[in-house]
């Protein structure tokens, strides 16, 4: 029993250290890479470190930039729906930014994955919300029907809940206040919110529990870390992610998205990190993952070891754009994840 407790504590500590490191590296990851002197570029504004900018995307939908990952917000008559909450350290600033869009109650939070970088604000932000009551709240004769205390409902695919919580007797990865309380285990969950159909789809990719959210009236898809325009994808093998699942998932996004004239704009896509995107950006990202997958697959076929595969630099042309040599998700770790997944 004691050994099990020690093991659980050690696991939690490792997870905490890893998550802190991952959050801390966001600022560095956003920092522009050193450009050679000849590669002139005019000054382009960016969000100030530690601050959050609010971008109106389309219709009811907004994108919060600066918390680490992008956070999607739908605001309207029914209240506020958020997709992901960012790291815990940014919760108060995220809430303040949401309040510049709407003072209405936060009704729903949707977690696109379980990583702390994306869901770290669940505790604080859910507690600041209020789920939609089933009955008139002022009717003192009966309960208003809400399942728990007054907080926003947290929706996720069921495996996200499994990884945040733990079986009885084991220490959970996250406090109970962070856990999703409205999970789904089917391919699709639907909401009608702020006069808009909202489709929550299970699209495994970087984990086995990714969700994407399509706002059908605004025609905006929030895809979480299936698309990270600042980095090679963080494929979490331990959480069931794989390059093949990611490529299939990106194709699902491409199948839903319809570009406008000249093959751009139209359906807008909010990536996990990086700029607001559209279909071509996702197509290029899918291209990158597929090319690296095929090269690593070829290396495995030719009998190359992992170290030889890394030395062969199968992602060479994408390194300047997405690669990192320091931090928790380096180019080497990405190649290793692809290699290990294909070697299975």
């Amino acid at each position: 029993m004691t050994r099990r407790l020690l093991f659980a504590t050690a696991c939690a500590a490792v997870a905490l250290i890893a998550s802190v490191e991952r959050v801390q590296t966001q600022a560095a990851q956003r920092a522009p890479q050193a450009r050679p002197a000849w590669a002139w570029k005019p000054a382009i504004p960016t969000v100030k470190a530690g601050e959050i900018d609010v971008v109106h995307v389309k219709g009811n939908v907004y994108m919060l930039v600066g918390a680490g990952p992008n956070i999607t917000v739908s605001a309207g008559n029914d209240g506020v729906l958020m997709i992901d909450t960012g790291p815990a350290s940014m919760s108060e600033k995220v809430l303040a930014a949401v309040r510049t869009i709407s003072k209405a109650p936060i009704r729903y939070i949707i977690n696109t994955n379980e990583h702390d970088l994306y869901s770290g604000g669940n505790e604080v932000i859910a507690a600041a919300g209020a789920s939609i009551p089933f009955r008139i709240a002022t009717d003192v004769r009966v309960s208003d029907g809400r399942l728990g205390k007054e907080r926003a409902n947290v929706i996720s695919y069921v495996t996200v809940y499994h990884r945040m919580s733990a079986p009885t007797g084991q220490k959970a990865a996250r406090s109970e206040e962070a856990w999703p309380d409205d999970t789904y285990s089917t391919p699709l969950k639907k909401l009608y919110f702020n006069d808009e159909p909202v489709m929550i789809t299970h699209v495994p990719g970087t984990t086995d529990g990714n969700s994407i959210v399509h706002f059908r009236t605004a025609d905006v898809i929030s895809v979480g870390d299936l698309v990270d325009l600042t980095s090679f994808p963080y494929i979490d093998l331990a959480a069931g992610g794989s390059p093949q699942a990611l490529i299939d998932g990106l194709q699902q996004v491409l199948d839903i998205a319809i570009p406008g004239r000249k093959s751009e704009e139209g359906t807008l896509i909010i990536p996990g990190r990086g700029r607001l995107a559209d279909l071509p950006d996702v197509a290029y990202y899918r291209e990158m993952v597929a090319i690296v997958r095929d090269r690593v697959q070829d290396m495995i076929k030719r009998g190359l070891t992992l170290e030889q595969a890394k030395a062969g630099r199968p992602a060479l042309e994408f390194e300047a754009r997405y690669g990192k040599t320091t931090g928790d998700w380096t180019t080497d770790k990405f190649i290793e994840a692809v290699y290990q997944s294909l070697k299975k």
Partner: peptide, 11 residues
């Protein structure tokens, strides 16, 4: 002024 770096890129 030029827009911020987080707006959509275009052709």
């Amino acid at each position: 002024p030029r827009p911020p770096d987080y707006v959509r890129h275009s052709w």
